[in-house]
């Protein structure tokens, strides 16, 4: 279940307005259009460069402010395997896990852009170069939910937590 990929590095306070600006999503915007424009304001090449399995790494307060669930869905659909940040906006955090996108709060200072990183969510461990970073592991039930694709598909399958 470990995830492996290349790091896309962002700083602090990346709000959902930066990573999924409302000006790119008038009513009726398709998922493909949202994917194309993700992080456009701070990393115009992001959606072209991201590879399946890649990991987004950020500082404090990633996904601040908004409750828009699309912000998490877009990253998952672009193939991002997980997001590591020192802290998250709480609505983004919940939306991400409910959408099947693992988000992990941990010390990200030693992780750099372009690093190859391996993340084991159930062991609570990430390795990038010589660095090993630990975090609160996902309990089995919650990881099963991520693997099922999120809260609703998980409950459809299992009926209960």
């Amino acid at each position: 279940m470990a995830m492996r990929g290349r790091v896309h590095r962002f700083g602090d306070d990346i709000s959902t307005d930066v990573h999924l600006s409302v000006k790119y999503r008038p009513p009726g915007t398709t998922l493909e259009e949202l994917k194309r424009d993700a992080f456009k304001e701070i990393d115009p090449g992001f959606s072209a460069n991201v590879q399946p399995g890649d990991v987004v790494v950020a500082g404090e307060n990633f996904g601040l402010v908004s409750s828009r669930q699309d912000a998490a869905v877009v990253l998952r659909e672009l193939g991002v395997s997980c997001v590591l940040a020192r802290s998250f906006g709480h609505m983004f955090y919940r939306n991400a896990i409910n959408s099947g996108l693992p988000v992990i709060a941990c010390d990200t200072d030693a992780i750099n852009a372009g690093d190859e990183i391996e993340v084991d969510p159930v062991a609570g461990e990430a390795r990038a170069g010589d660095e090993t970073i630990t975090f609160a592991p996902f309990p089995d039930g919650l990881w099963a939910m991520i693997e099922a694709g999120g809260l609703i598909p998980y409950l459809q399958e299992k009926g209960d937590f």
């Binding site: 669930q69 809260l151 009926g159 209960d160």
Partner: peptide
């Protein structure tokens, strides 16, 4: 705790929810 519609729907189904 404030939650989204998807979580309210799942609470109806289970009476439970996950928390950090």
């Amino acid at each position: 705790v404030a939650v989204e519609s998807v979580e309210i729907a799942s609470a109806y189904a289970t009476g439970k929810l996950w928390f950090k």
